[in-house]
Simulated assay, not measured.
Amino acid sequence: MTAPGTIYGLGLGPGDPDLMTVKADRLLRGARHVAFFRKAGRKGQARQIVNGMIPETAVEFPMEYPVTTEIPLTDPRYNEILSGFYADCTAHLRSLAEKGEDVVVLCEGDPFFYGSFMHLYTRLNGNVPVDVVPAITGMSAAWTATGAPITWGDDVLSTVMGTLPEDEMVAHMTRSDALIVMKIGRNIDKVRGALRKAGKYDRAWLVEFAAMPGQTVQKLSEAEGKVTPYFSIIVVHGQGRRP
Rank of each mutant, 00 (worst) to 15 (best):
T137Y: 11
T137I: 13
M139P: 08
S140R: 07
A142S: 13
W143Q: 10
W143P: 07
W143C: 09
W143M: 07
W143S: 07
W143E: 08
T144N: 13
T144H: 13
A145S: 08
A145H: 02
T146C: 10
G147F: 08
A148H: 12
A148Y: 09
A148I: 04
P149D: 00
P149Y: 02
P149I: 03
P149K: 01
I150S: 02
T151K: 05
T151E: 01
W152Y: 14
W152G: 03
W152M: 08
W152K: 08
G153S: 05
D155L: 01
V156M: 13
L157I: 03
S158I: 00
S158G: 10
T159H: 13
V160K: 02
M161N: 11
M161G: 11
T163M: 06
T163H: 04
L164A: 11
L164I: 05
L164Q: 11
L164G: 06
L164Y: 06
P165R: 10
P165C: 10
P165I: 07
D167R: 15
M169W: 03
M169A: 06
V170D: 07
A171Y: 05
A171K: 12
A171P: 10
H172W: 14
H172Q: 15
H172Y: 14
M173R: 03
M173Q: 07
T174Q: 13
T174A: 10
T174D: 11
T174H: 13
R175M: 07
S176V: 00
D177F: 00
D177H: 00
A178Y: 04
A178K: 03
A178F: 06
V181E: 03
V181G: 01
V181L: 13
V181C: 04
M182E: 06
M182F: 12
K183V: 02
K183L: 02
I184P: 02
I184N: 05
I184E: 03
G185P: 01
G185Q: 13
G185C: 11
G185T: 15
N187L: 07
N187Q: 13
I188P: 02
D189E: 15
K190F: 07
K190S: 14
K190W: 05
K190V: 13
V191T: 01
R192I: 14
R196K: 15
R196G: 05
K197Y: 11
K197C: 04
K197M: 05
A198G: 07
A198T: 04
G199Q: 04
K200C: 00
Y201P: 01
D202E: 12
D202F: 05
R203F: 02
A204D: 01
W205P: 01
W205E: 03
L206E: 06
L206N: 05
V207I: 13
E208A: 06
E208N: 09
E208Q: 12
E208D: 09
E208M: 10
F209E: 14
F209D: 14
F209H: 14
A210R: 00
A210I: 02
A211H: 01
A211L: 04
A211S: 09
M212W: 12
P213H: 15
P213G: 15
G214L: 12
G214S: 15
Q215C: 09
Q215G: 09
